[in-house]
Design a protein around this nucleic acid. Structure first.
Lengths: 192, 192
DNA sequence: CACTCGATGGCAGTGACTGTCATCAACAGT
DNA sequence: ACTGTTGATGACAGTCACTGCCATCGAGTG
């Protein structure tokens, strides 16, 4: 057996989420997280670069999206590629189920965490735009498609997460993309 | 004459921007800002809630946008209202001229500042969505229109700020809205 | 057995931010 | 002119996130 208990990182994450839920994010000190995990504060910062990052560690969503966009059929337009890539991630969240909702409650309750989420979504948009450029989409179409796609995701996810599970996230995403299509179709160019 | 020099807040802002530009944001301590302004660190935090907020103090852009959306003609669709409200703010930035670019350079050089900017844009989207709902726009159309509008603004502003002033921001916004219209028009509903 | 390596502890330090109380000119009312 | 209040500031101690540096010590390696 090792000199230390296994999976220090996982224990830290568990302790952090528990404490954030129990006493609130602000009222939780890093030293308390470390103590509950049987470690020291210094070790916490060896596993996570900050207090917030425990809740934003993975990059699986971004990886899936980029892969999906890269592997999309060549005939599809940029918005189709992004839309289908996003819709394909619905299962990702529905597997997590109530975990995703609990996490989102934590984030919504803290401006600092909400801010961190926005930068994660911005990174996602940047990665999507890069994937589109790799498909030959030019500028500013690549950035715009990525940003618009993430905007749709924001609205759809927010709607899904605050609804008592009648419709799936994938379905909500489809409807939101359709709504964007209608909204922009009504929009006429501004007169000079 | 008062007991103190006038406009403490303004002196703090000036000192902060100067120091951020000279030594960088991270290398500048709040105590140094206060010292240059002839004040103490404690007083800085009485005028600004944090080190970042010096660069994000005003809310004039948001006020203008909300007013413009509220006063838009009733016959215009939601996206038209948002598009024209945004295009009307072009003059706001062009009056500021090179100040806007210098500020953006600072922000782009620091992830912490960039993060703050994202939450300001998110607040702007929320305010736009509220203004749309006040016009009778329902959900999720209000949120979606606001988020899409802000997405367009992000791309257009980024493009304008990194270009040597050939075209105006208003013009860039018009083109970007047109690009969004083309991109979404090509997008077909996903097959079930 | 010696040697290295990797994960951790310990500890001091910096800097952002807060709570609290003291100060003191300006101002209002009498 | 006297007095009480107010408002912006100074002064100071304290908390907490985060960092650098060095020590420790079991586990693998030769």
């Amino acid at each position: 057996m090792g000199r230390w208990q296994p999976d220090a990182r996982g224990r830290l994450a568990l302790a952090a989420v528990d404490l954030y839920s129990e006493r609130g994010y602000d009222a939780t000190a890093v030293a308390q997280i470390a103590e509950r995990a049987g470690l020291t504060e210094r070790t916490f910062f060896r596993h996570y670069p900050g207090k917030r990052e425990v809740l934003f560690a993975g990059s699986e969503l971004q990886n899936r999206l980029v892969t999906n966009v890269r592997d999309a059929q060549l005939c599809t337009g940029p918005m189709d590629a992004v839309a289908r890539a996003l819709e394909a991630t619905g299962s990702f969240f529905e597997e997590l189920g109530p975990m995703a909702r609990a996490r989102q409650e934590l984030i919504d309750a803290n401006p600092e965490l909400h801010e961190r989420e926005l930068t994660k979504l911005a990174a996602l948009a940047a990665a999507l735009a890069d994937a589109l450029r790799a498909r030959g989409v030019g500028d500013p179409a690549a950035d715009l498609t990525a940003e618009a796609g993430v905007a749709v995701f924001k609205v759809a996810f927010n709607r899904w997460v605050h609804t008592d599970n009648a419709t799936t996230l994938t379905q909500t995403l489809r409807e939101t993309f359709a709504a964007l299509r209608h909204i922009t179709a009504d929009h006429a160019p501004s007169p000079r």
